[in-house]
Computed example of a mutant assay.
Amino acid sequence: MCRWLAYSGSPVLLADLLFAQENSLVVQSRHSRLGVEAVNGDGFGVGWYGAQEEPGIYHSTEPAWSDRNLREISGHASAGRVFAHIRATTGSPVQQTNCHPFRHGRWLWMHNGAIADFTLVKRDLTLEVEPALFPHIEGSTDSELFFFLALTYGLEQDPPAAVARAVGFIEETGRRHGVEHPIQMTVATTDGETTWAFRYSSEGKSRSLFHNTDVSTLRLQHPDNPTLQRVSDDARLVVSEPLGSLKGAWREVPESSCLVIRGGQEQMHPFSPSPAPSPSSATATS
């Protein structure tokens, strides 16, 4: 399906995240170790927070390993919060508007997984989107529609509750259409200050997701590692698969969980779908 990473901490060059690591995201685009597909070559995207109120994004339909502009930009741009995603399409076209991360205002969103039998449920899901939000949908993926369902249910006010309602509605809709396991997901979203990462699937066998252990502890264990010496103590990474084999560096995010990262603080909470409210009570902002 896809691979992604979410970074927060002291500003780092995008190249350090995308190219420099043993199992970097660009390496994973050709040789994923834990993904459903070994190759994720159907485009990529990077989102980062810099000088403007809204995050910048760069999308390309080229494979990440062969895009010269990505290597050029990432060697010069740095940021303290970065989302990056490499894509393996589950059926929607390879086009820039279908590349993650998706953006709405200050919010970024990316997804690994799929809404099962999307063509069967797409109409019902689309009609649930708040009318004021609907014109902002640019592509044709299940992932972007999932984002706008979460926005419809109040992502900007309460992300865990909104995602739980969106997942609840997706499951309810899928099962009404005879879909046994309606959703498979690892999701990351951020407003530029906090990152929320979710791991869940209807069948209880979710795609892989990891987060790094405390940087200050790792520095003591690995004093010769240059990357660890450069980043701040509050640096945090959430990744589809570990970026390297450094002993003790990675912990798996448990099944059916929501990881919340703000500054150097992180909290793990159980995650489960909840019944979606009626459209009239859903909250959204455009």
Rank of each mutant, 00 (worst) to 15 (best):
Y7E: 03
P11Y: 11
A15F: 06
H31D: 15
H31C: 08
E37V: 12
N40T: 01
G41Y: 06
G43R: 01
Q52M: 07
E54I: 13
E54F: 15
I57L: 12
Y58E: 05
W65H: 09
D67H: 02
R68C: 07
A79T: 05
R81N: 01
H85C: 05
T89E: 01
T89N: 01
V94T: 11
Q96R: 03
Q96V: 12
P101M: 03
L108V: 00
G113K: 14
D124L: 05
T126M: 11
E130W: 07
A132R: 01
S140F: 10
V167H: 13
F169T: 04
I170M: 12
V179S: 10
V179E: 07
H181L: 12
T186V: 14
V187C: 05
T189L: 02
T190I: 00
W196Y: 15
A197L: 01
E203C: 15
E203W: 13
G204W: 09
D214E: 14
S216L: 11
N225P: 04
P226F: 07
R236S: 09
P242V: 13
W250F: 01
P254Y: 07
C258E: 01
V260I: 15
E266F: 14
E266I: 15
S272G: 08
S272W: 05
A282P: 11
T283W: 10
S286M: 11
S286G: 04
